[in-house]
Design a protein around this nucleic acid. Sequence first.
DNA 1: AAAAAAG
Length: 609
Amino acid sequence: MRASWADLAANSAVENAGAGAGTSANNAGPGNSLPPSRSTYVPPHLRNRPPSAEPPAPAYSGGTTSGAGTANAGSRWGAPRGGEYRSGGGGGRGSGWGNRSGGWDCGRDREVNPFGDQDDTEEAFNEQENSGINFDAYEDIPVETSGNNVPPPVNTFAEIDLGEALNANITRCKYVKPTPVQRHAIPISLAGRDLMACAQTGSGKTAAFCFPIISGILRGQPMQRPPRGVRTVYPLALVLSPTRELSMQIHDEARKFAYQTGVKVVVAYGGAPINHQLRDLEKGVDILVATPGRLVDLLERARVSLQMIRYLALDEADRMLDMGFEPQIRKIVEQMDMPPAGVRQTMLFSATFPKEIQRLASDFLSSYIFLAVGRVGSSTDLIVQRVEYVQESDKRSHLMDLLHAQRANGVHGKQALTLVFVETKKGADALEHWLCMNGFPATTIHGDRTQQEREMALRSFKSGNTPILVATDVAARGLDIPHVAHVVNFDLPNDIDDYVHRIGRTGRAGKKGLATAFFNDNNASLARSLAELMQEANQEVPAWLSRYAARSSFGGRNRRSGGGRFGGRDFRREGSFNRGGSDYYNAGNNSAGYGASGGYGAGASSAWD
DNA sequence: AAAAAAG
């Protein structure tokens, strides 16, 4: 079985133990100029004074990390920096501000090294799996772009002028080469264009929108407008995501990318004490990562203003714009004080992009570029999908059989992680209890648990302490949980997209994954799309499932409208979609280097995680 | 109908 690019990317980029080859460290980025130091309060809109012929920012100023490409030592002292010169931070509130340096901040405000949490488990897992990554597999990846004047993709980080500090972090992250989505999305974003992007998770999606944002903030022109109150903060970028845990994850990643750039990243989400988040905000925020509810709260308290927003990114954008979230998003984006589309830059990322949602989303975009990177099946062909007919009453004992078998298999001495999806919160609790009663160490994550419990469950699962996690759809999207060997759809979802997102929690990082679904009459409406999806991914479709699929061909609410491909296609082109899979629509940009070997088949969105 | 997201 061939490794997909996403897995290769994840493998090499995220988990790669192969010492960071400094492909990008030498790229002494000009234009990465920083504001002059201030010893006094500097309002946010004045913090990014355009460069006055300053040398590049210091990429590195401490001794804790080796091999970070210190570059030219002179630049470190080339200009005074806020962080190095500020005396004790003129009065609490302004303490972080004016610090774009990357120099050590005074005393307690020193930036915590976000790379410090490398866990040993990770290292141990990595050793065996990171050799022989075949980057040539990238050649197979089809790319679809549409829109006017699409900037061409880049092949290396060095080609992109992200600046020295950011490049140093890229090295620290052991990113050697941009992933396909990064190769395309970053130039588009750096060119200031709005973007609707389809990309698999694990493909460096977070970096794809974080890099341009951080880079843009570092070099940005200030928007001149007075703050309207001292307690109000004015982030320059807003990143929204549908779950608290996903926001936390994005925050963790963004902090790594922004390390020692002086760009401040703050996260705000519900279920946690707001006071701590308020304190973080008061220390200064450039990039705010948030879930919608808590953000609305902060906006209504006037503790956050969106007036200065230059960048808006929606992760899992199709989820953010579905029935449950859309009003809140509309409120945040259209009814508060955020600059309108065309003034701000907007980036939407998702894996699945139904055309109805694309249409909704276009309200938030201005003259945008549509980008789809990846090949149908590229995410899922590493995942062996099994569907078993199991009556409701037999599900528990069936699950127990699976778990026993897995335990017997024993993976490298380390207990393999199993993620079990159920339909309801109550069902999650009940199943967890039952598993524990039967000697299987399980925990659960769902919306009825306290935030503390949720976070603890996730930590415990990730660490392998509790190798079975029973989850609702709260854990279906975006979460990067390494080493999930098996996803069990104890209850199948009603929507095929949810299924795709769920099984996408395994089969990551170039490893094989296994996904088992329990199917019965209750899931008849999913039969057709499930069978189609499995066929797409070259999976064996049980004959009985095909019969179900044929039977339910009329009622198929879940069937792709128009016969498929709605995930990887620009809805603006809906007029002419009866084309072959290898013939891409493209207006002005064909990504040279990518073969036309892929093609999007029916039910295509399913391959997008 | 369920889940998520504010308290």
